[in-house]
Each structure stands twice: as structure tokens, then as C-alpha cells.
Design a protein around this nucleic acid. Structure first.
Lengths: 244, 244
DNA sequence: AAGTGGTCTAGACCACAAC
DNA sequence: TTGTGGTCTAGACCACTTC
């Protein structure tokens, strides 16, 4: 397998090999978030290729959202902000139409020692592997507009169990990195509707149609680090996209 | 304005100038759909730039979905297929999970001589400009799952008024191009929900929750050539996306 | 064999940022 | 002034498609 892999790598263009090598260094956290990586000439010398080849490799990593380039300053490790998450498409605007920034509140963190088959399948783990379960809401001026259920592999995230609910950050992914050294770099989201659904946190008088968003969040190595189900009122959802 | 534009173009990088020039030739339909454009060396000679600069310009047009490159064969004018349209995310699969190809049926084509203010605003036209209105459904094995209302500027599309309903193609955009010489290259889609909506074509016993997709379809010059509202049952909708 | 795009190089010069 | 990424060049050679 090792040999097969190296044979495969040998057949790839050099810019793909370099891209792979740099990505491995990102996984190993050789450079920190928002830190400049070596400049193009240094990388060219190091990998024994021309600057143009380095540029092509870096452009691919930029397109993947792992790096950002800034003219005159350098190339930096990117901090993913998930600006295109479907969650952002609930209509939370103030009276002047400005988007408002929601507050994330953690209501519950608990261990599930014997796991859950459905969740562990989503996380690509054995069906009885232990989990951590979090209930969280996103609020806007005291009003809950999104209810979230989050599951994490216990081994990598058990440091979260020692943290009081009130000390959870507004943003979870930076916290995963700081507390558990787990970096989320991309995610897949699936949207569907639930007729007549009722959620404990979304104070509906009666069941109504809800949007359900399932998110699989991935680390740099492609493994699923978090599975999340978010619920919100369908009437408040609005999504826009461009197609070609 | 002409001068301003040329001044602006002068300050752009050459690959942007070349990209603009080639895009103008695409608008003028210098080359047809699926036809190869001149090879990279010819374009380099013609625009007096190096092959690398031509490649960069072409790569941008490829990223925009206007061209496709095929190694060993050439670079071709792309026919947009709108594979990522939200419409495709209704659950139309057969029992084995394979996606099924829906049939588009046109039920009505009529002229609206005095226009409609809301629609003309969507089409970026004067509020009383004349329109063409089309009602169409997408069917799967006799069952209607999407109902569409389509509005077009009358001037550019009046050839459609002479065509019998039964002779409308399954795909409208290739037909727009063939019959009216209007090429759709991109679109913006907005998704929202309608609680308790009822549509004449979607044979619901009672009002139910629907998905409404508003599409603004653009030509190569960026103008809105078609405004379309599509309706489907919310319970049958499922969308997936990747974020970074 | 001829023609196309794909990879890779080495180097010049420009534009922007920081000191 | 120095260092960074951005633009542009000219040319060699490779891989794929077609005849």
C-alpha cells in the first residue's frame, strides 16, 4: 500500500505532488492559523521545482480554501469561516435589513458511552463507539431561531466534557481547535423539510414545517469530525445560489 | 463612456483584456456551440501575447463555464447544462435510486401586451413593456412534480408565439437559442417556502407547504433574458452542498 | 505523423505592504 | 528599501486525439 501510494504519487504532475506535500504539512500543523508559510522562492528551492510549479500547487490549495494569498505580504493558512453555510440563510435581519449576528448557546453536553448506530455511521465509526452529545441553540435577541443537535467522537473531544456550559464559545469550531486540537476545514450540508415537526427549543404552539440541515464536518485528512442536525422554521428560510 | 471603458481596459492585466475580447466574440457568436475556437498559438499570435497569457485568459472563461478544454482536441464553446439547478433537487428517483429524467410539458403560451410591473422589474425592463408568458410542468411518469411560470421579453422571443404547444422541446434553453438566437449562460436561483400554497397543476387535495424557486436567467452580456417561478412540494425537496 | 492542450522551466519586471 | 505575490514571456517537452 505504501509502495502503491508512492507509485501513484510518482505518476502525478509535480504541482500535484507539491500540493500534497504542503497539505501534509498543514495537517501536521507545521504552520499555525493566520501564519505565513515560506515564500514561493523558498518552497521552490525546498521542493526542487520552479516557482511557477509552486504557484500552481498553492493556487490549488487556495481554491480548496486551505490557504489565502495576499499580495505583498505572503501566503497564509486560512481560517475557514463557513460563510456559505445553509444556516446563514435563515432570515435574521434587523429592521434596516442588516444581517444580525446570532448568539450560540450550549444547553447540554453529555457522554453517550455506548454510542448510537445511526450517528456513528454518519461519523464513519463502529456502531457502538462512544460519543459526545451537545444541544445548542442559535439565538437572536432572546429568540431561538435554530436548534442544533451535535455529535462528536468521544476520544478526540473529551476535553469538552470538563468545560462548564457557560464557558462554551459562541463559535464552536475555533473552540474545537483550541481545546481539542481538532481543525474543521470543510463540511457537507443536506437540506430537507419536515412537515409537522416540533422541537423542544423552538417554542411553537403547534407543529409546523421545519427545515432540517444535516452537516458532516471534515478535518484536513478528510475524516468526519462532527455530525450535526440543525432545525429551523421553514417560513424563515431563504436561500440563493448561482448556477452555470 | 466608450473612452472610459477603453481606459479601464488598458489598466487591466493583459489576460483580462484577452478574456474580455474572447468573451465579446462569444457574445457575437463568432463560433458556434460545441465548435472549437482557434488553438492557443493562433490566439497568441492574433492578440500579440504569449501562449501562457492566452492560457490564463481561457482558464478564466473555463472557470466561468463559457468554454471547455479537451486535451488533444481543442477548446470548445460550452453548452451550459445547469446541472446544479435547485430544480434538480426534488426527489425524483426510481425504485433503484437512479435519478429519473423528467419531461417538460408546455401548457400555455400567451402574450401580455401591457406587461406586468413586478415581472418587468425582475427582467430589468420598463414596467409596461410587453411580455410573453408560459405555463409549463415537469412530469415524471404522468405525475406533475414541478409547476413553472415563465416570463420573457416579448421583442426577443416573439418567435415562440408562432410555435404550437406540442412542438415545444423538452429543454427550453436550447430552443431559445435555436428559435430566438438567445443564449442563456448562467442563472441566479432563490429558494423559499410557501405554507399552505395551492397550484393549479400540482393536484393537491388541499393547500400544502411548497418550495418556490425564482430563477433569473442571464445572457452572455449579463442581461436578464428570462424570469421563472417554479413550484414543487416541500416534502419532496432535498438539497446538498459543500462549504469551506 | 500532425495537431491539440498539459506540464515545467528560468527569468524579467510590476504592484503592493511593511519598515 | 526590501520582500512579497502578480504578470508576462519564450521555449522545451509530454500526453492525448485524430488521421
Amino acid at each position: 500500500m505504501e509502495l502503491l501510494q508512492s507509485r501513484m504519487v510518482e505518476k502525478l504532475p509535480r504541482y500535484e505532488q507539491v500540493r500534497y506535500a504542503i497539505q501534509q504539512r498543514l495537517i501536521a500543523q507545521t504552520w499555525g492559523i493566520d501564519e505565513a508559510i515560506p515564500n514561493e522562492q523558498e518552497l521552490a528551492d525546498e521542493y526542487q521545482v520552479s516557482v511557477g510549479t509552486i504557484r500552481k500547487a498553492i493556487d490549488l490549495l487556495v481554491a480548496d480554501g486551505l490557504l489565502v494569498k495576499q499580495q505583498g505580504k505572503g501566503t497564509f493558512v486560512r481560517y475557514p469561516d463557513f460563510a456559505s453555510s445553509l444556516i446563514r440563510f435563515f432570515r435574521h435581519r434587523d429592521t434596516s435589513g442588516q444581517p444580525l449576528i446570532p448568539v450560540g448557546i450550549v444547553h447540554q453536553v453529555q457522554e453517550i458511552p455506548t454510542g448510537d448506530a445511526r450517528i456513528n455511521e454518519a461519523l464513519q465509526r463502529p456502531s457502538t463507539a462512544p460519543l459526545i452529545y451537545i444541544e445548542r441553540t442559535r439565538n437572536l435577541q432572546q429568540r431561538i431561531f435554530v436548534s442544533e443537535k451535535i455529535w462528536l467522537p468521544k476520544e478526540a473531544f473529551q476535553a469538552l466534557l470538563t468545560i462548564p456550559l457557560a464557558e462554551f464559545d459562541n463559535l464552536l469550531y475555533p473552540m474545537y481547535r483550541r481545546v481539542c486540537s481538532q481543525l474543521i476545514v470543510s463540511a457537507k450540508e443536506q437540506l430537507s423539510f419536515l412537515a409537522q415537526h416540533q422541537d423542544a427549543y423552538l417554542s411553537t404552539q403547534q407543529p409546523e414545517t421545519m427545515v432540517k440541515i444535516c452537516r458532516y464536518a471534515y478535518g484536513l485528512d478528510g475524516r468526519v469530525l462532527e455530525y450535526r442536525e440543525s432545525y429551523g422554521r421553514a417560513a424563515e428560510f431563504y436561500y440563493e445560489t448561482v448556477i452555470h
